[in-house]
Computed example of a mutant assay.
Amino acid sequence: MFALRTGQDDRAGARFAGVGPVAALRERMVLPKWLRRPARLLKRLNDGEIAPPPYAATMLTVGFFAITGVYGAYVGGRMPDYAQAVTARTGFAVDEVRVIGHQHTSEIDILDQLGLDGWTSLIGFNAETARERVASLPWVEVASVRKVYPDEIEVQIKEREPFAIWQRGSELSVIEENGRVIAPFAGGALSGLPQVIGLGADRDAAGFIAKMAKHPEVASRVRAYVRVAERRWDLKLNNGMTVKLPEYGEEEAIVSLIAFDKQGGLLSRDVSAVDMRIPDRLVLQLTPDAMERRTAELDAQAKARKKAGKRT
């Protein structure tokens, strides 16, 4: 028994005699499948069966420093900037911005909100963040920002609808029909909008202007609608006349005003104010020139009566 075991041990020793430790290890274990191909490649390189390509050492060095740089950018939080720089220089730099649907919004303001610079990459550009910034502009109601590869950004907006110019003190603002302020009034094409003045005019203007639209004979002459004490309206006409409407029954008062104008041309006379606040009564205030002429007429009539009395 002892001799037999010894013989077996001798044969095992003969089997591994002259074999290196790596080879012996390979004989005794089986590598996982994913390591077999790299192991065979390393063995062939070690045995000289595969010759390394020219400048392999240089390429490995460059690759090592590139990986080190990428890792450093990742650790330092500069990976987005690194990706932007690389992709921008490989043909994906934003070269064109197309804006659709803007009328009152400046293209310069839109470009500022996009946050572009000379080397912004379309790949790293965050379209949703840019859309939120564009949507925050005063005139913009809805915005969409789309990337069009390889180098274009498309911005499409829907603007708010201007309804009137609201005056509070010396401040002028463009408002929507619901009274929401859009932006400060800057003149230009919006000058033709209705002007509403006073506290509460922004909130109540839409309903009242809708009533006035039924009476174009007066509405076409109105320069401004003035909200008085948040209770009633005054009409400022183009010729400088003021029509003071009552708190209740404003439409009936307007109908009466139209009738008076048809009968005697009231809205074209030298009258500075028409007061309709008292039911069943119309109070007229003459302009300074008309008042002077009226005073002169009354004086002339008084003198004429005086002379007539002396003769008798």
Rank of each mutant, 00 (worst) to 15 (best):
M1W: 13
A3Y: 15
R5S: 12
T6L: 14
R15V: 13
G18T: 02
G20P: 10
L25M: 05
L25W: 13
E27K: 06
V30G: 08
W34S: 15
R36N: 10
R37K: 12
P38I: 06
L41D: 12
K43R: 12
L45S: 06
N46H: 15
G48I: 02
A57H: 10
A57R: 12
A57F: 08
T58N: 08
M59E: 10
F65S: 07
V75G: 05
R78A: 14
M79D: 08
Y82W: 13
R89V: 00
F92W: 06
V94N: 01
V94F: 01
V94A: 01
V94C: 01
D95F: 13
D95P: 09
H102W: 06
Q103I: 07
H104F: 12
D112A: 12
L116G: 04
W119D: 14
T120G: 01
L122Q: 04
A127H: 13
R131S: 07
S144L: 02
R146W: 00
P150A: 05
D151H: 11
E152T: 13
K158M: 12
P162S: 04
E171A: 07
L190G: 07
G198K: 02
R203I: 09
D204K: 01
A219T: 11
A229Q: 10
M241I: 09
Y248E: 10
E250G: 04
E251M: 07
E251R: 08
E252S: 14
A253M: 06
I254S: 07
K262L: 08
L267S: 03
A273Q: 07
M276K: 03
P279K: 12
D289T: 11
D289E: 15
M291K: 15
M291N: 12
A296W: 05
L298S: 11
A304G: 02
R311L: 15
